[in-house]
């Protein structure tokens, strides 16, 4: 559903219309991702930050709309471009920034870094440096939910590059067969690393569920409400026990594949054109047109969020490094099943 149609839905009392808290929360989290990622980019290019990182700028509506449509117990799997998913699922800036700086209070105690941020307590089952790495994990998480008899569903974020992996087809077959509660949400940002989708991918992405009886929807991934509605519809289906759905969210990454690369594979004019469809100003225009917030209110959110991001950097820089003596810790769990005789 487009933003334009949202008002109509509200008038019809559509229960899929987000509450005001959700509407404002989505705005704050989109701005949060934007400011977090811009700051990470700045610090990374200044060589203050170790490792390498992939910017989510331009794709905020997908993570935020998707996660806003979930219930608190629901789970997500993420990608190498995972900062946005983590923030959208509720991981705080300090834990994320400390992780990116390799510090002890980081979300993974400095073991993971940019591509492996996870917070299992929030149902964030991990960013994943392997393209398509989330497919099997999402299927397994959903299988566990089915066996354990809870209602938790798993939202599997992946990219247009990953849809060509065999694991996509293996997972969609199995989850459809067993009617597992999974939503496959493809962020089509038009590029697999540096290579345009036209050069790698045959057919329509949304049709890839069809042979398995899995419904496919295509939405404007820069329209946060459209993503929210699509995921909500898929979540309802999953919770009714009808199995997985496939959603293709068409979006665009404003920066390159990884921060710091040269981007010879697309023109500045293309990027400028795409930036006109920036999801955040679009959503703010809608919020203002609906009279839910004014320009000063929006500016206030940017100011607060920017301050929080700055504070998270200060926190990360002041935080302790992990102790080298602990470098081998947590490789193996020392626990065993309760019934073990050992």
């Amino acid at each position: 559903m487009s933003q334009g149609a949202m008002k109509e839905a509200a008038q019809e009392g559509d229960r899929r219309l987000p509450s005001l808290d959700v509407l404002f929360g989505m705005h704050r989290r989109m701005v949060g991702i934007r400011q977090f990622e811009e700051r990470v980019r700045t610090d990374y290019l200044a060589r203050r930050m170790p490792g390498f990182t992939h910017s989510y700028v331009g794709e905020e509506a997908v993570a935020v709309g998707g996660c806003a449509a979930l219930e608190p117990g629901d789970l997500i799997t993420s990608t190498h471009r995972g900062h946005g998913h983590a923030i959208a699922k509720g991981v705080g800036f300090p834990a994320m920034m400390a992780e990116l700086y390799g510090k002890l209070p980081g979300a993974c105690a400095g073991r993971g870094g940019s591509m492996h941020i996870a917070d299992f307590s929030l149902g964030m089952l991990g960013a994943n440096g392997i393209v398509g790495g989330g497919f099997g994990l999402a299927a397994g998480a959903a299988l566990a939910a089915q066996f354990l008899g809870n209602r938790d569903l798993t939202l599997c974020f992946f990219g247009d590059g990953a849809i060509n992996k065999g694991q996509f087809h293996e997972s969609i077959n199995f989850t459809a067969l067993r009617r597992l509660p999974v939503i496959f949400l493809c962020e089509n940002n038009q590029f697999a690393q540096y290579t345009a989708i036209e050069r790698t991918t045959a057919g329509a992405l949304a049709d890839r569920g069809t042979p398995f009886g899995v419904p496919g929807a295509e939405v404007d991934g820069n329209d946060v409400l459209a993503v929210y509605q699509a995921v909500r519809t898929a979540a309802d289906r999953a919770r009714r026990g009808e199995g997985p759905s496939l959603i293709i969210a068409n979006t665009y990454r404003f920066y390159g594949h990884n921060v710091g690369e040269a981007v010879p594979y697309r023109s500045e004019a293309d990027v400028a054109e795409r930036r006109k469809r920036d999801p955040i100003p679009r959503y703010e225009a809608w919020l203002q047109a609906e009279g839910l917030i004014d320009a000063a209110g929006c500016a206030g959110v940017w100011e607060e969020v920017t301050r929080e991001v700055d504070e998270s950097v200060a926190f990360a820089l002041a935080a302790a490094d992990p102790d080298p003596a602990t470098a081998m810790d947590d490789l193996y769990a020392s626990t065993r099943a309760a019934w073990s005789t050992q």
Partner: peptide, 20 residues
């Protein structure tokens, strides 16, 4: 399970990380 080795092991790991 289908003959989908990657899915079998990926799902086994995912399910194991979620309490099975």
């Amino acid at each position: 399970m289908p003959i989908s080795e990657a899915l079998i092991v990926g799902a086994a790991a995912g399910a194991a990380s979620r309490g099975l």
